[in-house]
């Protein structure tokens, strides 16, 4: 079958993965916005959230047949909630332990990077030791099958759950940044931290909450990812790098840019993997990044967090 025949199927698959990239990318872009810092340990926040959600769902799962109906909805919701909570807790601790002490000492940029890599290695190896070094599947929480067709493309229950949850999170985050007092504080700190202080913004509090919000999204995203591709101690690395790429692609620091970058990256990978070979997916993703940055060094939508809302 040719590309044209498969186009809509590839689009559906690409949107699903891309929406997850977008959810994770927001964590990178928000933290970059307020601290001008790439939080390279964000991929481990994602991984820890995935395990948290996985254990919660497994613990609540009744024995026997695959659940259905309200039970399925409840289990997915519980997995998302616990995943988000674990991600938030991990991000909070990360900020306290790996970044805040450096901020207090006005450490140079390089110190943050080294601290992030250290925290990341620690979390990965702790997870490897505690959860084992093989893949851990998420048990079936619902019967997966084709729900309906869009232009001939099959849309599975899995796709609806993942894409639906991701889109809800993206919309909520967008509204939070644009409309709430906290969102205004985040944008003010991102644009001009000193002036934000003069307006009465508690910058330390905004920084912590920014990490927590990024952690909520990454944790819930981790659970969705694990539901689709299994969990493992090193599951954070590849999607983490992809999400970082997505954030840069859209314009790091820009909320809508991260969303756009994630979706685009998912689609490009999906199309490219079909046209060339599945194993070229990552190559294509990064070629796109390099190509776009050569033309637009500040990303597709530029770098202002404030413009995003």
């Amino acid at each position: 079958m040719g590309f044209a025949d498969q186009f809509w199927q590839l689009t559906v698959d690409g949107l699903m993965v891309g929406s997850l990239y977008a959810v994770i990318a927001l964590g990178y872009t928000l933290v970059y916005g307020v601290l001008q810092l790439i939080n390279f340990a964000h991929s481990e926040v994602f991984m820890l959230g995935a395990f948290g959600g996985l254990f919660a769902a497994r613990g609540l799962l009744p024995g026997g047949a695959t659940p259905s109906g309200p039970a399925s909805v409840g289990l997915v919701a519980a997995g998302l909630a616990v995943g988000a909570a674990c991600g938030a807790a991990a991000a909070f601790i990360l900020e306290r332990v790996a970044y805040r002490p450096l901020r207090r000492r006005s450490a140079p940029r390089l110190a943050y990077l080294i601290s992030a890599i250290g925290a990341s290695l620690f979390a990965v190896n702790l997870a490897g030791k505690e959860f084992g070094r093989q893949n851990v599947p998420v048990p079936d929480l619902f019967t997966n099958g084709t729900l309906f067709h869009v232009f001939g493309a099959q849309v599975s229950t899995q796709t609806v759950v993942v894409l639906g949850a991701a889109v809800v999170m993206l919309v909520l985050l967008d509204r939070l940044v644009a409309r709430t007092r906290l969102g205004q504080g985040i944008r003010a700190v991102a644009q001009d931290a000193d002036t934000a202080v003069l307006m009465g913004v508690n910058v330390e509090r905004v920084i912590i909450l920014t990490f927590v919000i990024g952690g909520l999204l990454a944790g819930a995203g981790g659970f969705l990812y694990a539901m689709t591709f299994n969990a493992s101690y090193n599951m954070g690395f590849v999607p983490g790098v992809k999400a970082f790429t997505a954030a840069v692609l859209g314009g790091i620091g820009n909320v809508r840019g991260a969303m756009l970058g994630g979706i685009l990256l998912g689609l490009v990978e999906s199309y490219g993997g079909y046209v060339f070979q599945a194993s070229y997916k990552d190559v294509i993703a990064f070629l796109v990044l390099v190509g776009i940055l050569m033309v637009r060094p500040s990303g597709l939508l530029g770098v202002r967090l404030g413009r995003a809302a």
């Binding site: 944008r187 003010a188 644009q191 000193d194 002036t195 003069l198 202002r304 967090l305 404030g306």
Partner: peptide
């Protein structure tokens, strides 16, 4: 405090 250079939030 109205800071030097106005420091209006440019993206708001």
């Amino acid at each position: 405090h109205v800071p030097e250079g106005r420091r209006v939030f440019a993206g708001m």
